[in-house]
Amino acid sequence: MANRALYLKFLSAVLLFGAWEVAGRIPVSFAFPTFLESMGALFRMIGDGTMATAYAETLRPLVVGVAISAFLGIAIGLWVGLSSFFEWLFSPIFIVMQAAPLAALIPLLVLAYGIGLTSKVLVVCIMAMPVIVLNTAGAVRNTPESMKEMGKAFLATDLAIILKIVIPAASPVIFAGLRLGISAGFIGAILAELKITPTGVGDIITYSRSIADYPSMYAAIFSIILLAVLFLNLLEKIETVLFKGNQRGYVSD
């Protein structure tokens, strides 16, 4: 059975990339290179170090922004989830942020902070943070009352209840928020590179478009999507290893 799944995954990749190849050969558009041309460009750029330099540039605001969002987002989320006052005060902001197209703030961020790293980090943060905060807060608020009561009965301090009961209980949802946040962070990082100043992967995309080197452009886009997906899968693996119990379903009955 596992074989069938693997086989079908492979088949589905072949089908998609095959369709891409065929569409490129027709060609459906002058700006639509074949799959093989794009892969060729990808390996050429990996080979000559273009990719490495580009990603060093791209990953900087992404990593910094995601780290800030994760740290601050979980902290604020815990705070909002644990205190009804902070919930009242902060959660409307994040609810609005979650629904709103925050990308519209980018021109303003550029005016205020220039076109440097700060602006890009902020773009990643505003995209990634709301969902992390809201998920954390919601999960913390939904910690089963009976578990907290059990903690109190066995003399857990408030801090111990948060560390040993509330956070582990909330961790699956916090992780889900983190995955959504990071995915939004990738969107923000690329958006920043395309909109603010072309650097890193955004630069490859913009530049190769301007000189009509479409294989390189598609290769760069392909690589960033691949990276995002791989990274999110990795995060899932880390979660499984780190929080064994999360996989194990809840027992409260």
Binding site: A189, I190, L194, R209, I224, I225
Partner: peptide, 9 residues
């Protein structure tokens, strides 16, 4: 979960 912004160009 892909960064769809990259597809806009």
């Amino acid at each position: 979960s892909a960064p769809l912004t990259a597809l806009v160009p």
